[in-house]
C-alpha cells in the first residue's frame, strides 16, 4: 500500500490516456534496467541484433544465396588476423567472420519464426483449453502431456531426421516441439485469472464472452508467456545449433552449429578458431536472452506487479 501511494502520480502531471500508457512503459523499462545483469543481457542482445541487421554492410553478401558460406579455396585454415579474413577461415575456405555475422541473421530468422508461431499456436490452444474447459480441455491437455513427456531435443531430432536434412525442417521440428509449453502456461494462467472477480464484474455488466476473453482474461494471462518467449529466443537457437551440428541442416549453411561441426576436426591440430568462435556466439546468444528473460520475469511477475 505504501508503494502504491509512492507511485501515485502528482495531481498536476499530464493525465491523458496515451501519456499514462507511455509513462507505464517507461516505468517498466526503468525497472528492467535497474538490474545490472538484465542490462548486460539487453546490451548483448542489442549488439547481436545490430550485427544481424547490418550483415550485408559488414560483409559482402554471397551470391546467389547469402545464407550459404562463400568459399575461398585459396585461403584454407588461415588463422584469425589474416588480412581479408579477420577471424580466420575454415578447412573448406569459409570465412569465419562471414559465418558469425550471417549466422546471427540465420539465428534471428529462426528464433523469430519459431517463437512467433509457437507462441500464437500455444496461446490459441491453451486459451481454448482453459477458457472453454470440460472435454475440450481434457483432449488438448492430454495431447500436451504426451508431447511434454518426450525430451524436446530427442523429439525435435526425430522429426527433423525423418523429414531429411534441411534448415526448414529444423524450423518445423522446433515449432512442433515448442508450442506445448505455451499452451500449458497460458491454460494455467487463464484458469487462475478467469476466477477473478473482475471477470464476474464483466459478466454482470453483460459483456460478451469474446470481449471478456479479449479485455480481461488474456491481457492478465500473457505475462508469463512473454517471459517464456524471451527465454525461448535463446533456447531455440541452442537446440537448432545442436541439430545442425549433428548434420540435420544443409552443409555449407551460414549457421553457427554447422560451422562448429565443420571446424571440429581441426581442433586437435590447433585450429581452434573455426569451431570456438561460432560456438561462443551460440553461448553468447543463449546467455543474453536468458539474462534478459530472467530480469523481465522479476519485473513482470504477476505476483508483484501493480500491488
Amino acid at each position: 500500500m505504501v508503494e502504491a501511494a509512492a507511485r501515485r502520480p502528482p495531481a498536476s502531471s499530464p493525465s491523458g490516456p496515451l501519456a499514462i500508457r507511455v509513462r507505464r512503459f517507461g516505468e517498466i523499462t526503468k525497472e528492467v534496467l535497474r538490474n545490472p545483469t538484465t542490462t548486460i543481457g539487453l546490451v548483448i542482445i542489442a549488439s547481436l541484433l545490430l550485427m544481424a541487421l547490418m550483415a550485408p554492410i559488414i560483409t559482402e553478401a554471397n551470391t546467389p544465396d547469402a545464407y550459404q558460406m562463400p568459399r575461398d579455396w585459396g585461403a584454407i585454415n588461415e588463422p584469425p588476423g589474416t588480412p581479408g579474413h579477420l577471424l580466420g577461415t575454415t578447412s573448406t575456405g569459409g570465412d569465419v567472420l562471414y559465418g558469425v555475422v550471417w549466422g546471427a541473421r540465420t539465428s534471428l530468422r529462426l528464433s523469430v519464426i519459431v517463437v512467433g508461431i509457437t507462441m500464437v499456436v500455444g496461446t490459441i490452444m491453451g486459451s481454448i483449453a482453459g477458457f472453454i474447459g470440460g472435454k475440450v480441455d481434457e483432449i488438448i491437455m492430454r495431447l500436451v502431456d504426451v508431447l511434454l513427456a518426450i525430451p524436446e531435443l530427442i523429439f525435435a531430432l526425430a522429426i527433423a531426421a525423418v523429414l531429411g536434412p534441411s534448415f526448414g525442417n529444423i524450423i518445423f521440428a522446433l515449432t512442433v516441439v515448442f508450442w506445448v509449453k505455451y499452451a500449458r502456461i497460458i491454460r494455467g494462467q487463464i484458469i487462475h485469472v478467469k476466477h477473478n472477480e473482475y471477470v464476474d464484474s464483466a459478466r454482470v455488466i453483460g459483456d460478451s464472452k469474446l470481449n471478456i476473453y479479449r479485455k480481461d482474461v488474456l491481457p492478465n494471462s500473457v505475462t508469463p508467456v512473454v517471459v517464456q518467449a524471451t527465454l525461448d529466443m535463446g533456447n531455440i537457437v541452442l537446440v537448432a545449433a545442436t541439430l545442425s551440428f549433428i548434420g540435420l541442416a544443409e552443409a555449407g549453411l551460414a549457421e553457427w552449429g554447422v560451422l562448429v561441426s565443420e571446424g571440429q576436426a581441426g581442433i586437435s591440430a590447433g585450429r581452434w578458431w573455426a569451431s570456438t568462435i561460432p560456438g561462443a556466439m551460440v553461448f553468447l546468444w543463449a546467455l543474453a536472452f536468458n539474462l534478459f528473460g530472467d530480469g523481465l520475469r522479476d519485473v513482470l511477475d504477476p505476483r508483484t506487479e501493480g500491488r
Partner: peptide
C-alpha cells in the same frame, strides 16, 4: 448489478 466484497480483485488491474 453487483458490488463485490473485494474491490481490488473486482477491478481489472490493467484498465483505467
Amino acid at each position: 448489478q453487483f458490488v463485490f466484497q473485494d474491490a481490488f480483485s473486482s477491478l481489472n488491474p490493467r484498465h483505467l
